[in-house]
Structure formats: structure tokens, C-alpha cells
Nucleic acid binder design. Structure first.
Lengths: 191, 191
DNA sequence: CGTCTATTTGAATGTACTCAAAAGCGGTGG
DNA sequence: CCACCGCTTTTGAGTACATTCAAATAGACG
């Protein structure tokens, strides 16, 4: 059951007791596919850990074009970090793509936990840093790589996703049109 | 002299005493143009506030292509935030582009200051958040805007820089070749 | 003044996009 | 269980934005 404890213990070792305390501060929820669990414009109050299923975060620019910020499958965290940290209304939607079991940690409880288990502060700090680096790297990638190279990186980052998500969405993530993605794909396969 | 105090007071109000304490923990340094004050691969230990002059941060990808992450002119902070926060070797260079007067705040002193002036924790938290949003926005911009639109955004963000920096560098920031930038510029001027 | 680098200009090319139409696929209701 | 609807994917033709390479020109600095 406790994929989330593994996730944490990889970075900071919790005692049995701390693990129980941690879990007691979380809620496990089940969502059906297509549920929007965070609306852009709302202040984000929670972090989500995916136990099962698949979520995505995306923003919508003027034109009605969706841009996928990130996917989160089993073992990933997802949130609108900017909104969560700043208490300001965010720009991201978070949507469930496959029926999901999600562990919800409210910001409030997270901060309480820092008190009781200071190690967790380290854990979440590292989580935030990783987000920062990933973001920075993705920025650089979009500046310097071709669509094909970006697709390769996507496959490395999310090895299981190519089979699981509509390729329209992958196209959005690597930032090409669905049409172009389709052509690129068949070009790659022909090799 | 105290541009940096203005910068802080815009977000959290410091008493006269706190201001003096803050300044006592900083060092003011003068650098000549072309000095590299942070090497990629090093662990970044400081935050820099620009009093005068102009700096830039950039990374170098395999191909010897420079990508400019950010500029910092009078009143801006600059650092390799990832490296600073994580204590890991960073990927960014920071270079002085015009002779500069820079206020250096070491991470160590920054943390001491959190103790004595808790308000500063709030200030730096907001600084980090802004960095995060800016990064996220720039990512989205590179995905959805044309070179011309990115150039417009650059001009809004750094109103004085178009006159000050070699246009090669602006081209790098908005992520086009110098040749294309030149053509785009004359196209814009012809309107 | 000469050298080195930055900028401009031009031609050819490539990568990715738009628009349009056809084919495939999945779910729902009869 | 099949038929139909809506959405995703494929394919093609034409186009646009941006790149590469090459060469000429302009500027900056010692």
C-alpha cells in the first residue's frame, strides 16, 4: 500500500512511528478519469501523490491551446507549486486522465508535519528543487532540441506513458501539433 | 546608495536598525566587464544584487551553444538558484557584461539573517517564487509565441537592455540565431 | 590603422504548421 | 450486439517561420 512511504524513505529515512504520523495527516481519494481536481484561477492548497492512475497539469493560453506542464503517474507528485507556495491564484489545471487513487496532503498538514518531523522539511525542499531543475532543463530543451529529441527525452522521463496517453497529449507536452507528431512518429518507425 | 534596501522594503518593511544589520552582512564588490563570477560546475554560495552595471547568467549545451537564462541590471538579483538551494554543482555561468557594482550576500549570512530578521525569510521566499513563475512563464512563451512576440516580451521585461547589450545576446535570450534576429529587427523597423 | 568580432544581406534549405479530408477507434444507445 | 457519433490519428499539399552557410559591411578596441 505504501508507495508514498517508499518515495519519502528514498530521500529521508522515517521511523515506523513517523510513517504512521505522516499517513495520519494525509487523505486518500479516488477520482474518475476526466475529473478536474484543480482549476486555474483557484489557489492551490494541496500536494497530490499518485498511487494509481494518471494525472496531468496544463495551462491554457489565450488561444485556447492547452500546454501540458507535466504528467504524474504512479509514484509521482503533482501540484501547482507556484500557487501552493505563494497562496496566489494559479495558472494550472490538474486533471485525472485515468481513474486514480491519489494521496492528498494539504499545505496546512504539511506545515504541521515540519514541526513534528523536521526531516520532512528536507524532503519537500528537495522535491521543490527537483521541480526547479526540471523546469529549467525543460526550458533549455525547448530552446535547443528538435521535436524528435524532445520526444526521446519524454520517453526517458516517462517510460510507460507512450502506450498510455493519447498521442495528442504527448504532442502537446513536447510542443508540436498532433499532425506533425503523427508524421514524426511514422518517420521514426520507418528506421 | 541603498537601492537594495528599497528593493527589500517594497516587499517587507525593515526598521532602520534592521536595515543596518542587513547591510552589515553584505559585501559590495566591483567587477570589470567580462569577469566570470560563477563557473558552471561550481557550487553557488551567494546571491548577487546589482547596484550598477549589467550581468547575465547562461548555460552551455554540448554544442558550444550559449543559452542565456537571464540578465540582471540595476535593481535585479541574480544567482544559480538551483545550485544555491541544493548545494549541488550548478549548470550556469554568471558573467559581468558591463563594469558592475554588486552586493554579495552569502548563503551563510542569509540564513543568519533569517534568525535575526524573520521578515527576510518572507522576502527571499517571494524572490524564489518569482523566479519560479518567471521560469514557468518563459517555458510557456517559448512553446507558444513567435520570435517576434518573444522579443516584445523581452523589451517589456528589460526596457533598457535593447540599447545596452550586443544583439547577439538578445538573440540568444529569445532563442533565435543572430542572423534571423537581424532580419526580424529590420522587418519590424520597416513598419 | 589593422584586427577581430558583430551585424547585415542573400540564397537555399529544413523543420514544423495550417488546412482539409479520409480512416480508425471507442463508447453509447437502441 | 450492432450502428452510429464523436474524437483521435493519419495522410497530403501548400506555406511560414526560422536556420545554415557564405560573403560583404560596419563597429569597437588596442
Amino acid at each position: 500500500m505504501e508507495r508514498i512511504l517508499d518515495n519519502i524513505n528514498k530521500i529521508v529515512a522515517l521511523t515506523e512511528e513517523e510513517q504512521q504520523l505522516f499517513l495520519s495527516k494525509t487523505t486518500t481519494l479516488h477520482f474518475k478519469a476526466k475529473t478536474i481536481i484543480l482549476q486555474a484561477g483557484m489557489v492551490c492548497k494541496d500536494s497530490y501523490f499518485v498511487n494509481k492512475g494518471l494525472l496531468r497539469s496544463f495551462s491554457i493560453s489565450d488561444n485556447i491551446v492547452e500546454h501540458i506542464m507535466s504528467f504524474a503517474c504512479e509514484g509521482w507528485w503533482i501540484s501547482d507549486l507556484y500557487s501552493l507556495l505563494s497562496n496566489n491564484p494559479g495558472t494550472l489545471f490538474i486533471e485525472v486522465m485515468e481513474d486514480a487513487e491519489v494521496i492528498v496532503l494539504s499545505k496546512e498538514n504539511q506545515e504541521q508535519l515540519y514541526h513534528d518531523i523536521p526531516k520532512l522539511e528536507r524532503f519537500f525542499r528537495i522535491l521543490t528543487e527537483n521541480y526547479l531543475v526540471a523546469n529549467q532543463e525543460r526550458l533549455m530543451d525547448n530552446l535547443s532540441l528538435t521535436a524528435e529529441e524532445r520526444f526521446e527525452k519524454f520517453n526517458k522521463k516517462y517510460p510507460t506513458l507512450f502506450q498510455r496517453v493519447p498521442q495528442k497529449q504527448i504532442a502537446s507536452y513536447i510542443s508540436v501539433t498532433p499532425e506533425f507528431f503523427s508524421k514524426m512518429k511514422s518517420r521514426i518507425l520507418r528506421k
